[in-house]
Amino acid sequence: MRPVIPYVTAALLFGLGAYGVLRRRNAVLVLMAVELMLNAVNLILVTADTTVRATLPHSGQVFALFVIVLAAAEIGVGLAIVLQLYRLRAGVAVDEVPLTEPPATVDADAREAR
């Protein structure tokens, strides 16, 4: 087995994921690109498990399982944020999200004063 083949596959997938995160406007597609990057890291971990003789056997595969669990948690919270964004603004374009809080409305100010 030549380890350079899966390593290069993982490097290309990570580059594709980085490209997708920066290129896409739709938040769901950004999450898909993040999944590509996480899978590239998993492939690196599993391949390293075959090439590196560690003190503990199969550590790389255990780490890959942990990363899969983290990815599941990430996708749950990420989709909750995306759906909330859609409910608030009726769109999921990430470059239309305001990065600062909107100024308080007159109505809220009046309630504060009371």
């Binding site: 390593y7 993982a10 990570f14 580059g15 594709l16 997708g20 896409r24 739709n26």
Partner: peptide, 23 residues
Amino acid sequence: LDRPGWPAALIGGGVALGLTALL
């Protein structure tokens, strides 16, 4: 669905090429 592509292509290609060369 897409933003202008060249910065993303630059960074993504750079990451892929760098990691490939390293490995």
